[in-house]
């Protein structure tokens, strides 16, 4: 038996490490009966493609950024809101692997697209790259920052005072080098892999949010598995969660060291509490953007309920992350 697991990232990126660990555990637990075949970035098409392939059962597991799942389940874009999950790595990990509001609250929505959300992971804090220092929203004026095309990231940088500029990632290196855009936002390990540090002068740590990705299974397929195999999957997920978390922490710090070695002139800024406060204040208005976005994907009669549901998700996530942070103290 062969199970197929596709991720949106390249070999040895965080999602791939996740898949590798998952495959290893399944192989061991099934005593070699079940093999997991791993696909990386581009091998089976775009992020949307692999989500749909899992949805129609061509592959069994899919790992993509939460933003991409947001094309099908708009509620999940709560995870894209800035300064909502801006806590300690461990606390974020705790919420992402156990959040009741996501796993229980959104499971019917996932079911509706024939997916079962198995886990979520952080791939490290998002960092801004720029060619000038940025401490306050005012510094963002006239800064063209490359973001993902989806609504929440675009609105986020608009609210922060920058010019959000969607670009496909193949064009980003050249665009940064020639000044078509001034900055971008991504986790450190990815910035290093894409070599974007070669074409930026500043890296700014805003303590804003992690890049969050999801792991889902094809739901009809999963529900028909024997309980034995389901247990196997859950066990592998738990092990992979841990492996990806450890790897993420390690690779982000290692790649930061490499960036400093390779680009000694690159300056690093960590926003202090006061500076962060300004951005936090601005991001509050984005909650409404999110509620509107969710509500607008429903027919008129269901919009009030959908909006309420979205509000609950944000409130619960906020509560969960606070509780997790407190537990860790």
């Amino acid at each position: 038996e062969t199970w197929k697991f596709a991720s949106e990232e390249a070999k040895n990126d965080v999602q791939d490490i996740y898949a590798q660990k998952f495959a290893e555990v399944i192989k061991k637990e099934s005593e070699g009966d079940i093999k997991v075949r791993i696909y990386y970035y581009g091998q089976l098409g775009t992020e949307n493609d692999i989500v749909e392939l899992a949805s129609n059962g061509t592959i069994q597991f899919v790992s993509v950024g939460a933003g991409h799942i947001g094309s099908y389940i708009p509620e999940i874009q709560a995870l894209s809101l800035p300064y909502l999950l801006n806590a300690d790595e461990e606390a974020v990990h705790e919420v992402l692997t156990n959040s009741k509001s996501i796993y229980n609250g959104l499971s019917p929505k996932f079911e509706a697209v024939n997916l079962k959300l198995l886990s979520m992971m952080s791939e490290g804090d998002m960092v801004w790259g720029a060619n000038k220092p940025i401490h306050t929203p005012a510094d963002f004026e006239n800064v063209k920052i490359r973001t993902f095309t989806s609504a929440i990231p675009t609105e986020t940088y608009k609210v922060f005072g920058a010019t959000p500029t969607p670009l496909s990632w193949g064009e980003v290196y050249g665009a940064l080098q020639l000044g078509t855009v001034d900055g971008m936002v991504n986790p450190i390990y990815f910035i290093y892999n894409a070599k974007w540090h070669e074409v930026q002068d500043y890296l700014i740590f805003p303590g804003q949010q992690p890049y969050i990705s999801t792991v889902s299974a094809s739901s009809k397929w999963f529900n028909n598995l024997s309980s034995e195999k389901q247990t196997m999957v859950n066990k592998a997920i738990t092990a992979a969660d841990k492996a990806a978390f450890d790897y993420q922490v390690r690779i982000n710090s290692e790649n930061m060291v490499k960036i400093r070695e390779e680009s000694p002139d690159l300056k690093v800024i960590v926003l202090n509490e006061e500076e962060r406060g300004e951005f936090i204040e601005l991001s509050k208005s984005l909650h409404d953007t999110y509620f509107d976005l969710v509500a607008n994907t429903y027919p008129e009669s269901e919009q009030t309920a959908a909006r309420q549901n979205a509000q609950d998700i944000v409130n619960n996530l906020g509560r969960e992350i606070k509780a997790a942070a407190k537990n860790l103290e």
């Binding site: 949307n48 749909e52 949805s55 129609n56 933003g67 991409h68 947001g70 094309s71 099908y72 708009p74 509706a112 697209v113 024939n114 993902f148 095309t149 989806s150 609504a151 675009t154 969607p166 976005l293 607008n296 994907t297």
Partner: peptide
């Protein structure tokens, strides 16, 4: 029909 059933929305224009 499939992508209508799973209600896929475009990321920018929704």
């Amino acid at each position: 029909l499939d992508i209508r059933d799973i209600n896929r929305l475009s990321s920018a224009l929704q």
